[in-house]
Design a protein around this nucleic acid. Structure first.
Length: 310
RNA sequence: CGCGGGGUGGAGCAGUCUGGUAGCUCAUCGGGCUCAUAACCCGAAGGUCAUGUGGUUCAAAUCCCAUCCCCGCAA
């Protein structure tokens, strides 16, 4: 089939690779290159880099809804449109172009976690299970009819980044099944139940700020959910301390240590008191100006016992 | 040329402002003690203090200059 593929970050890469391997004729639409990193180097999105390797033509209109985007789409005249974490809303005109409509690969079990960063929010909320849903895109935000779903178990210590990478691959598999079913004309289609719908927003830098008045489990889930981006942090001696990894401990602190108080040493590890009186072990951190490292190593040079994280 | 922090034995840090013998915690090696331990005690080895055969100085990890590398913020 002639497929217009709209995607931007890593999440979309396995899907694109799969479509290419399946022999479809492709045209890739992705976001414009952006200035990334410390010295603002213009960097191509992951999907563009992948497409170039596979020698698939790439189109980067500022706005797919704009004249340029719509014209490019029409000129290609695709049978089908596929989106995976594209990052732009499609217009009704866009959606009218492909003869078989538009399939979206979404990183949650819809209608839950509609919107941006569904994988991260699922981890932050401590979900034991999330999944991939393919749906028929309509003009709403992830509101279209559900095609296929596959549940994915979330490991209790898994980070959003790890889960994201796994789900990108699973997303490609579900997309493959969806398209195969479509080609056979055997694609189930079920409207979403709006009553069960939840919507999540994009993550912001501040979402990484830890609140030790929350239960240890909630803090742990937050740390996992914002790893690798925006990254969890707390303030120590007025400076931000990044917290990469934590581990739930059985240590309870009946003593009147306040939330955020640290104890432990390089032998035992670094523990911080949380709202439910349980201690959370910080296993991997990053000091200002430094690289990420084992918390135990850091304690060799900077004992933190008795100090407070805010 | 966006703003800022940093590079000190194998690891993590102090020392730099106020130049004057290279320090701490751990790891390593040797010895001791203990029924035993992530224990404890004694001792040892290990560093051109990122680079420049740069500048200033009687004297530079420390002050000045240049270069390289790492990191945070902002985008």
């Amino acid at each position: 089939m002639k497929i217009a593929f709209l995607g931007t970050p890593e999440f979309a890469v396995p899907s694109l690779t799969m479509l290419h391997a399946a022999g479809h004729t492709l045209l890739v639409f992705t976001q414009p290159d952006k200035q990334i990193g410390r010295h603002a180097v213009l960097t191509a999105p992951a999907v563009k880099q992948c497409a170039q390797k596979l020698l698939i033509p790439v189109c980067q209109p500022q706005k797919i809804r704009g004249e340029e985007g719509q014209a490019a789409l029409k000129a290609f005249a695709p049978d089908l449109m596929v989106t995976a974490a594209f990052g732009q809303i499609l217009s009704a005109e866009n959606l009218a172009v492909p003869t078989h409509g538009c399939i979206n690969v979404h990183g949650s079990l819809l209608p839950k976690y509609r919107g941006a960063a569904p994988i991260q929010w699922a981890v932050i909320n401590g979900e034991a299970e999330t999944g991939i849903t393919t749906m028929l895109t309509d003009v709403g935000l992830d509101t279209g009819d559900i095609l296929l779903k596959r549940a994915v178990a979330v490991d209790a210590d898994e980070t959003a980044g790890e889960l994201y990478d796994r789900m990108a691959v699973i997303g490609a598999e579900v997309l493959k099944e969806t398209i195969e079913a479509l080609e056979k004309g055997a694609l189930p289609q079920k409207p979403q139940n709006p009553a069960e719908a939840t919507t999540c927003r994009m993550l912001k830098k501040e979402d990484g700020k830890l609140d030790f008045s929350q239960p240890a489990l909630a803090v742990h889930n937050r740390v996992r959910g914002v790893n690798p981006w925006p990254g969890a942090y707390a303030f120590w001696r007025e400076l931000p301390l990044k917290i990469w990894r934590t581990k739930l401990s059985d240590v309870h602190t009946e003593t009147s240590l306040s939330c955020g108080s640290c104890f432990g040493d390089a032998k035992r590890g670094l523990f911080v008191c949380c709202g439910d009186g349980r201690a959370l072990e910080i296993t991997e951190l990053q000091a200002p100006g430094g690289k990420r490292m084992q918390a135990r190593s850091y304690l060799l040079g900077k004992p933190m016992s008795g100090e407070r994280l805010i």
